[in-house]
Design a protein around this nucleic acid. Sequence first.
RNA 1: GUCAGAGUAGCUCAGUUGGUUAGAGCAUCGGACUCAUAAGCCGAGGGUCGGGAGUUCAAGUCUCCCCUCUGACACCA
Length: 531
Amino acid sequence: MNNPDHNHKFSLTTPLYYVNDVPHIGSAYTTIVADALARFQRLQGKSVLLITGTDEHGQKIQRTAAEQNLVPQVHCDRIVDSFKSLWDKLDIKYDRFSRTTAPKHQQIVNEFFDRVWQQDDIYLDRQQGWYCVSCEEFKEERELIANHHCAIHTNKQAEWRDEENYFFRLSKYQQQLEKLYESQPDFIQPPSRRNEVLNFVQQGLKDFSISRVNLDWGFPVPEDPKHTIYVWFDALLGYVTALLEPDQEPTLDHALSQWWPINLHLIGKDILRFHAVYWPAMLASAGLPYPKRVFGHGFLTKDGLKMGKTLGNTIDPSKLVDRYGADAVRYYFLKEIELGKDGDFNETRFINVLNNDLADVLGNSLNRSLGMLKKYCQSTVPQLTSADYSLDHPLKSIGWDLGDRVSQAYENLQISHACEAVLTLVRAVNKYIDDSAPWKLFKQEQQAEVEQILYAVLESVRLSAYLLSPVIPVTSSKIYQQLGFDWDFNRDQLAQIEEFQLHSKWGKLSPNKTLGKANPVFSKLELPSED
RNA sequence: GUCAGAGUAGCUCAGUUGGUUAGAGCAUCGGACUCAUAAGCCGAGGGUCGGGAGUUCAAGUCUCCCCUCUGACACCA
């Protein structure tokens, strides 16, 4: 907590995705958001740990593997490969990929389980009820629809179970949790989600079972190996295991020494309760500090409809990247969808937004400016600095505090606002060029004025590319390179604080540098004709 | 059923403590220009701000009722 390094470190997680199937668009969405946030923190010179990974235990996995005549681990390995390959395609730069089947994870789980056990927070009790394997949850009779089918997995029938399970004394932590929500008001975000949790907790917490019998695929309960630790209990601890250095001996102390507590758990709204209620209670029992915040984002729809296999309207994230590229997919989800709200994917809108924002507005502003620099200044950046412009200059007036405003937006997880703020500058660039018409001034031999305009324009494009680099690293890199910087936002991510302070301010563009030929940085997309 | 959030131009959304002709981006149409990825710039059309009633000099903005959507919780079967 009082670690002096604290402000220089930032740890965040995506969920550990369930390996029931290849990654779907929702997992891609969360991970893209997490990556952009991580990139922004790195840009500021902070040490960042971005954790993602997979949750691989449970009956559902065991059965899915069996259906394909695979042993569970082989099935998991295959799915894990598909996750990793998608993250690569999307330019996701994760620091840890935490798998719950990793041997070191079992040691962490055992140690943690033992701590909770020592607290007398685990007890054996009989549990009867309907169990949805797809949810890996016991359901109340009333939660089920006709014929005991699960309300979420409507094609799956819940199974009657009557078994002895170990229970976690969640009820004991009711007050502590309420105190947590009160003393850390932004622990759960956005506020609407927070209210839901508050509502739920106020009604009284019930203990929940954390073990299953008749299940092999998982870790045995240390004190009673006939039982297998419940998949969620195991999965959440994957965040802790992820904190271990690669060669470190897997103990809780080691895991928690550097990066705990996690600054941000980024999750979908469907798993809010596990992260906002069960997880902090488990941590409290083990005597560990709480994470700083849990953010539950919204869901994606397609053309206004819920996506689902039954409707057959799912989006394959892998195909989407193959067709349009990582920057395009990233930009759409980060800019066009307000984090926290549900958002819609519509392919025509997707094309329109990208072609306008990235090709016509951002890309073309660079292209036309470099064209003029070549014709009017022999491609040499004019000998000017920020000091040569007054604060009411059309571009400097927007650019001078843009870095601060955009930083604030990223900090608040308002990536969409950050993009919008940058776009305002780029749109102003295009307007400024037309208003000042350098081509006329050049014909009138007003060279100084032309240079004054071009420097301001190029610098504004530079600043925009820099501030958008967490969102569109490929495009930003191309812009930076054409502006004479030897920099690749995908490769070089170890920034210094001083660098950020320079590059995030208007006026960093180095004068006198001779720039190369302009090349479109973002090619226009086309709707697929017919498949 | 209870609670929370939402319903503003074709689409995605902004709209401060109620106050001049309700805004932006995209899409559509028209115009002038040429440095540019036929991009950009200028302009136009397009909204009874979910519906109704009320408070007020004045309501997208406050109150009440209703409708629709989303979510959480509960109940019934």
